[in-house]
Nucleic acid binder design. Sequence first.
DNA 1: GCGTTTGATTGATCTGTCTCAAGAACGCAG
DNA 2: CTGCGTTCTTGAGACAGATCAATCAAACGC
Lengths: 242, 242
Amino acid sequence: MAAGLAERVIAGMAMFKHVSRPHLAELARHTGMTRLKRGDFACRRGQSSSCFYGVANGQVKLVLRSDSGEEKVLRVAEPGETFCEALVFRTRPNPIDAVALCETLLLTFPASAIHALLDRDANFARAMLACLSERMQDLVDGIEANALLSARQRIASYLLALAAAGRSSRVRLPVTKTLIASQLGVTKETLSRLLREFVNKGLIAIDKRDILLHDRALLAAVAGTTAAPSLSDTPASESSSV
Amino acid sequence: MAAGLAERVIAGMAMFKHVSRPHLAELARHTGMTRLKRGDFACRRGQSSSCFYGVANGQVKLVLRSDSGEEKVLRVAEPGETFCEALVFRTRPNPIDAVALCETLLLTFPASAIHALLDRDANFARAMLACLSERMQDLVDGIEANALLSARQRIASYLLALAAAGRSSRVRLPVTKTLIASQLGVTKETLSRLLREFVNKGLIAIDKRDILLHDRALLAAVAGTTAAPSLSDTPASESSSV
DNA sequence: GCGTTTGATTGATCTGTCTCAAGAACGCAG
DNA sequence: CTGCGTTCTTGAGACAGATCAATCAAACGC
């Protein structure tokens, strides 16, 4: 039954999309399942495991930590996503910490099972290469945002990206603002201030984790690299101060 | 003869290390060769090519560009290295510009030839996955340095990394200081000033592109995340001002 | 030789973002 | 309801690094 669950989850992952039923079943037999509580580590920096991981349900934050305790969030793995694939193909020790954000069910794919599957199915190799390539492009996108955009622009872009995923103009932040701030490379204070600024300009409305994008075009102008021309201080309504 | 050159270059690349002679020859037959002059583009952002590239000789800088003309160097591809592998496995348009830094001989691997090789040789798939994984870990290292270290620490780390590659304490900067600055995420002015500071502290000596690391241990202390304890202002020699 | 280009240095100043500090708002366990 | 931990907000001030501007030095073509 547990194996059945694993197989169903695995079948839904992009990387295993085109793998045949029998091969899936075989992989599932070698897949480990772990239940994590909030704050538990899926894996730690420095350890040289040779598995990678998948999230069945829950959320796992992937973070870089400095000696002095600061942390930088690389991304948050959601259900159906995998992480630490590189561990299977490289011997270098794991560079990141993976920490459960809530009760999480984790799948563990041992290197041996993955290598066996690579031998049997060239299309799986292709899918895996595609996944790593996508992950890489996401990293590059992040580097680009951090190097070339201001904090204000990064935050506006982030909101637009969230809205692009869903069709609507209402977006829900997937994690706490503190985590999002770290992901965007700003402090939580700066994120808070800039979101407030967007609200004051009438670009968005905030209700806890739900954000309503009032004016996507203007938000896109803020996000654009070319500094928005005439956006200095246009309050949403003149009467708001009364 | 040109094909012979291509085959020899290809054979030296990490990704093709374990590919058999006949398969190599077959790949070489489908590999394009281009001669680039300084400033020529190997590929441009936004174009959706489905090849990837290898450097036979010369240097190619891989850069992100903003609308306003600033640029961030991701890395510089040296002879024997490949770039833009993701283009073969993803449909998303190319996110970077690749520009020759000098006279450069470029190999072009078409997606079709790579996919054919993937079908024939599972070990090639593994090698390719290993290459992408390594590239990804390098990106993560860069993100970590930028997010968690100060400019001073990044520069010190960079010098130590150069020294670790070669065995000696004399290192030669692989490209101009301006490019290195961009790679490290600082302006050329800041790089210049901090290198000067290292010289004044007696940590290094600079002769154009050659740098001599006088005191690696101290340099490592500067690079360490925990701010170096008692390094405020220790000039190399008191008499240097005379 | 001598302009021109590319790269490096150095100083003076400015500013975006962080840091520190204090509250406020919320959720949850008892 | 009450207390407590977590997250978020807001302000005042500080600072690392950017920007602007001026030189300087080497390399290159003619």
